[in-house]
Design a protein around this nucleic acid. Sequence first.
DNA 1: TTGTAAGCGTTATCAA
DNA 2: TTGATAACGCTTACAA
Lengths: 353, 353
Amino acid sequence: MTNEDSKRNFLLNIHDLAKHLNISIGTVSRALNGRADVNAKTRQRVIEAAQKFGYSPNQSGRSLRQGSTGLVGFMVIINRDRETRGEAFFMSIFDGMQSYLSSRGLDFVVHFCGSDEDPVAYLRRIAERRLVDGIVISQMYRTDKRIDYLVQRKMPFIAFGRSESSKIFSWMDLDFEGVAEKAINHLCLLGHRRIAIATASNDINYGYVFVDACRSSLAKRGLSLPDELVLQEPLTESGGYRVGERLLAMENRPTAVVLVDNTMAIGLYHIFQDVKIIPGKDISIVGFDASPNGEFLRPSLTQFEVPLGQLGRWLGEHIMLLIEAKGTGKKMPVFSKLWPMKMILGDSSGPTS
Amino acid sequence: MTNEDSKRNFLLNIHDLAKHLNISIGTVSRALNGRADVNAKTRQRVIEAAQKFGYSPNQSGRSLRQGSTGLVGFMVIINRDRETRGEAFFMSIFDGMQSYLSSRGLDFVVHFCGSDEDPVAYLRRIAERRLVDGIVISQMYRTDKRIDYLVQRKMPFIAFGRSESSKIFSWMDLDFEGVAEKAINHLCLLGHRRIAIATASNDINYGYVFVDACRSSLAKRGLSLPDELVLQEPLTESGGYRVGERLLAMENRPTAVVLVDNTMAIGLYHIFQDVKIIPGKDISIVGFDASPNGEFLRPSLTQFEVPLGQLGRWLGEHIMLLIEAKGTGKKMPVFSKLWPMKMILGDSSGPTS
DNA sequence: TTGTAAGCGTTATCAA
DNA sequence: TTGATAACGCTTACAA
């Protein structure tokens, strides 16, 4: 040991604390970990000293010994569809998840895969180096290699978003079918028969799921969804503007449009404002989730609400169950859940004129 | 060792790999770490086997041995002012930071402190358990205990945002003074003399910094900023709406308003639309950073642009310098930087009528 | 160029 | 109730 100063750097470890208290490191460890077989007074002294000196067990040492990190990860891919489920969306989920996990003594970290990195390689790195005990992966592709990898590796994970896979795995997703059904039902009751759907232009899975769901809700009512009414554009303001342009260019213009994303709504409102078309009167619009300030559009947007904090807690709770099952060597349970969303009526949807 | 199955769980370690290759663990380690003293052929075999079996060194083992984790953190406080520098803002910074750090072989994780947790306690936990080698803390309070703690602990960190402190520490912040000067200059040239400032109603530091900067820019031009023209509201759409209400209620109404945040702009536009006041004509508005879709307001918002990816790279680069300095036992350098922002003229600011 | 072994900080087993 | 010690997986100094 040449440079113990630069390495140790004033940070104390269990030996220092034990020496200071004149007891053994084993006792310190047991006291701090709430073991029963420690004298109450001794425990008191240890805890006070730890507090006083700002000591917590080094996580690397712990992890090594225990074979687990006490950490839960959440992987976000920057830019894959960040405009959509932007931060307000993820942050609320993180909030709920963090809150649940910390109440259970687990730590929570978010891994952002850069826009210039390969998501699979990024995830492999996290997994191979054992950075976390379990992870939630988000922004699922239609077929997503990450699933196969994690399944094969037997690493506890939950996919936030459905994906087509031959493997059995746990996932949770927004209830796109329910949203589609409610949106289509609402519009049909208002007399709409020709309804367009604006969806993502990339390979994120929920775009497909949503279009399929809308199509079958329409079919139930004897209506069809021809391909020219499925408008694929980026889930951005300008994508929404572009949707408007395409709608305006149609000779047989739809009387209503359903959006898979609220950022689009902003652009759509702008083009309509530019050409003096009033949402809810001249054309009906149904948006998606309430997060990206859809409630501030005028006229107010008909849209769906989802309690993201609760959703985050669900994720925390269930990833923990998976981790625990693995820890105790039990068979890992498999969860799947569609998260319900509630329609909030606005003024952007009205009867056909 | 009772339950080696449940613990080991198919995950291989350096011993397994070494045994499989019929060489010693030392050689495996050296090969994988790019040491010079390894036979080229041996190295090749090791790397291939690692790839084949999906082996990377266990980070806990590494960290323990090396005394560092190879991890850089970024602490975000959820809900403190998430509406503000919401979505695109942090994500773009993460993108740049992640991109830089991964090119330098460091990993990057984001720690979200829940809205129900104490930021100082949360940070202490991260630091004490040695989860990261260095950290960027954001959303600085006017006086922020986190700074004193990290300084005293000698942990490498950069504060993203200024804060009043007697300690010496590294920080980076947006150039609020520059923004204020450009905004005020722009408005004064257009003939405005009575200018209001809309700022945050919480204790986040930059609100104060910005108001002070505006005040001195106004003073330079012989103008004053009376307290009743400093409108403190939450940095949300409804906060912006409220700013509008307060402006409309004034008997001697300002002819222009400068916002410290663009989310507010959305609410402000709405109330003006409701009462048929046209931004840029009846009243001038200057917004702040371009991230929260300010560019989609009509009329277009005069606002400021900041290359967030570059800013993230700067943070990555400099936190790494701090970590390296500490690792080599050198005196830690101290950085401070004001990040410049560029004014983008829109139609929301015009001459006084 | 390779193997051996110590040690990083912790927890868990076992004996006292 | 406590102390001594092995072991977790890795890197590195040193010997071969």
